[in-house]
Write a protein that binds this DNA or RNA. Structure first.
Lengths: 217, 217
DNA sequence: GGATGTGAATGCATTCACAGCA
DNA sequence: TGCTGTGAATGCATTCACATCC
């Protein structure tokens, strides 16, 4: 099946399947059914099968899916069967936390360079990484073959920095700033707005319980 | 319209509308049309109007929406017209970054207490906040009227801690651990898996360009 | 004229239900 | 029997297009 025909939500769930499969692998499971995988994540078995079927035939009728086989197939589909070099712009609190976060490397992403506009921060080292000035960004992108970036700069700097990233040849941006970035169509942007996530919780918790609306009057 | 009938994606977009409106307000715009608001965020005008209409009639035909009016209406709908006390469990790198993140308070969320299981971390202070032992969690929840929590503990501790949060009376969890939490139906969970977001970028960037598939064979 | 709010029409995603295989 | 893969049916969400109002 052609990639354009895969529903967006299905691609998202692929990552959840992979994450859960790695957990199952870790505890020694060798095979798993769509029902079991779905239950662990809150999806139906049909959903799991349909999602996987968009990408090929990975299962074994009567048996289910082989855990290690499906893991490596999913990694290939998601593009994480090899290591990606990633750069980060913005060495504030959040940026520095991401610099030391181990979870990225475990998933195949290597933070290869860090940049900041603040002269006071430039040159400071964190583990293997030294904070570099923005002027070096474009050169680092081509030297280290970096294609994706994490953006942890203040709100009002985000668009300007994003423009620089695109100009330097970056094709994908993980944006932590609380603004919608304006980028060309061939640039992929994923956004993480932490306060916005809390706001969504707030909405759910502010709602009257389903099927039991409080009396009004 | 009843809340149960509102599409989930629409609730999500509500947060984006609010964020964009605050930007417009900041630069002195007083009114805005559904077309303009949509364009800033990559939605159609019809989408904007339909989303807002799920919650009431906020617009002025011929004029558009009054920015300040719509902001306060959306805040009320999302439940952020008042301050929420929030707690955090897990004072690792990410947790400490969140402790000093200013964006939460700006949106109406006050980090009121921080907990960690590691005795070495307990008592350490960051700004106004002191890291407290897990044993004090339940008492703090009721004393400070806390109803939502952020979870930044290691993967394998996440479920156990989530259970404690629920037992302590927490109703909403913002989960940063790379696992699917198992919680009762009346507990709301929002998940943020940073590596998973990069993985989604990886997928998009690994795909053949739309309408221009590379020759195979 | 210029904008909203909204039924109706369309398009997309999920679920059903079953043929087919181990 | 147990489970996958998949067309067909259903259910959601988005878009259209227009009546309505300032």
């Amino acid at each position: 099946m052609k990639a354009e025909e895969v529903p967006n939500p299905a691609v998202y769930r692929l990552s959840f399947y992979l994450r859960q499969l790695e957990l199952f692998d870790h505890i020694g499971r060798h095979t798993i059914s769509s029902k079991q995988l779905g239950e662990a994540l809150g999806y139906t078995d049909a959903q799991v099968r349909k999602d996987l079927a968009y990408f090929g035939q990975f299962g074994h009728p009567g048996i289910g899916y082989r855990v290690d086989e499906l893991i490596s197939r999913l990694k290939k589909i998601l593009g994480t069967d090899k290591i990606w070099n990633v750069l980060l712009v913005g060495a504030g609190n959040l940026g520095r936390a991401l610099m030391t976060y181990r979870g990225f490397l475990r998933k195949g992403f290597k933070l290869a360079a860090v940049f900041d506009a603040d002269p006071a921060k430039i040159g400071r080292e964190f583990g293997e990484l030294k904070i570099r000035p923005m002027e070096e960004l474009a050169a680092a992108v081509s030297q280290l073959h970096i294609r994706m970036a994490m953006l942890t700069v203040p709100q009002d700097a985000a668009q300007t920095v994003a423009d620089k990233l695109v100009a330097a040849g970056i094709r994908g941006i993980l944006n932590f700033a609380a603004v919608s970035l304006n980028t060309p169509d061939d640039i992929f942007v994923q956004s993480v707005d932490l306060a916005l996530q809390l706001e969504q919780l707030s909405f759910r918790m502010s709602m009257p319980p389903t099927g039991n609306p409080p009396a009004v009057g």
